[in-house]
């Protein structure tokens, strides 16, 4: 039984809840770009939304759109990935505590500070009592969550799931990460960030939700496999083994979509991959910016490609559109310690 993406929705730095940003992405000229917000009022009653931070609102909107599209009113499991969790509320509580002392602190900010707020708020909203978990492992938080979900499908304990990658980045946290070399001082055109490599990249944000089921009908793509690996000594070999375990090899892969972000050190790892000659490659981080769960946006972009059967110029690393795409391998690494592999294929006709 395969696992299929029945619905997907993204709130990102591109137009929210729309594929428009994949084909005609907006270019930015700033090292920090925040999400373009959807109209929250259309989805959330003010009384319910009043205590929710942005990341929770975005996650709820993205997840409800994805579930609705897939026709899954109640998923069997909700598994989320978030690298940093609810930063905005964590900072509000921390800032007040450090600056004003340990009194008169507001409980709401503490309650919403925990990483599992997102998964649990989605569950509360749906009244979903199923399996619920949150993965918080740096740049592979989303893939880790997705892999666990695939295990649950594999052993037959679930037949549908909501999986997502959710991260927000506040201006103070952006500055902190800037101090340790994450970002460029200047960005001329975010869409050209990979073609103009330098030290650092630009920061994005995003909430990307996928409704998964065993129903191939009308699905965006099939998830053939997901794997994470720690400190793997040979990225290319590991990717080959991943394909091998799925009964495939490199020639079965139409597009390799990498986590290149224009940062010299980050991208060196991908440049050092020994891919087959003439392998088509694609990149998505120029569209969504770098954040801990950016690979969720990558999987969204790949799913859009497979649904359309083409790789648009906006994603192709050489800028050339290609038709007839049937299988995409997503590769990502985080600081050469955490590695991830996702294989998607088209559901065919």
């Amino acid at each position: 039984m395969g696992v299929y993406i029945g619905g997907v929705a993204a709130v990102s730095i591109q137009e929210p809840l729309s594929e428009e940003g994949i084909f005609r992405p907006v270019a930015y000229s700033s090292p920090q770009v925040r999400c373009i917000e959807p109209e929250f009022r259309k989805f959330l009653e003010p009384m319910v939304a009043r205590r929710m931070s942005k990341i929770v609102k975005r996650a709820i909107v993205a997840s409800s759109v994805a579930l609705e599209e897939a026709g899954i009113p109640m998923p069997d499991a909700i598994v989320s990935g978030t690298g940093l969790g609810c930063v905005e509320d964590t900072e509000k509580f921390l800032d007040a505590m450090v600056r004003n002392g340990e009194h008169c602190l507001q409980p709401t900010f503490f309650i919403q500070s925990t990483h599992n707020t997102i998964s649990s708020q989605i569950a509360i909203r749906l009244g979903c009592h199923g399996y619920n978990n949150t993965h918080v492992h740096r740049g592979i938080s989303f893939e880790s969550a997705l892999q666990e979900t695939m295990l649950l499908f594999g052993k037959g304990s679930i037949h549908s799931a909501l999986v997502g990658g959710y991260d927000e980045l506040t201006p103070p946290y952006f500055r902190l990460l800037g101090r340790i070399g994450y970002w460029r001082e200047e960005v001329k055109n975010s869409l050209h960030i990979v073609q103009e490599p330098a030290a650092g990249t630009f920061a994005g944000e995003g909430s990307v939700a996928f409704a998964l089921s065993e129903n191939a009908q009308g699905a965006w793509a099939q998830i053939e496999g997901v794997s994470i690996s720690y400190a793997c000594p040979d990225f290319t070999r590991e990717a080959g083994l991943f394909l091998h375990r799925l009964g495939l090899n490199w020639k079965d892969v139409d597009v390799v979509m990498t986590g290149k972000n224009g940062d010299l050190e980050n991208d060196r790892v991908y440049r050092n991959l020994s891919l087959p000659a003439g392998q088509t490659t694609a990149v998505y981080k120029p569209l969504c910016g770098e954040f801990f769960t950016a690979p969720a946006y990558g999987m969204y972009a790949a799913a859009v490609c497979l649904k359309q059967g083409m790789l648009p110029a906006s994603l192709a690393e050489d800028g050339k559109e290609i038709k007839g795409i049937r299988r995409i391998l997503l590769l990502n690494h985080w600081q050469e310690k955490d590695y991830s592999f996702i294989l998607l294929s088209s559901c065919g006709d």
């Binding site: 690298g83 925990t114 990483h115 599992n116 993965h135 918080v136 740096r138 880790s144 310690k337």
Partner: peptide
């Protein structure tokens, strides 16, 4: 996740490392 990796690296030898927070 950084915390987890620090702990994992202290002993070494892990090929799968992740962090949960519920």
């Amino acid at each position: 996740g950084a915390c987890t990796e620090k702990i994992a690296d202290f002993m070494g030898g892990f090929s799968y490392v992740t962090t949960l927070s519920t």
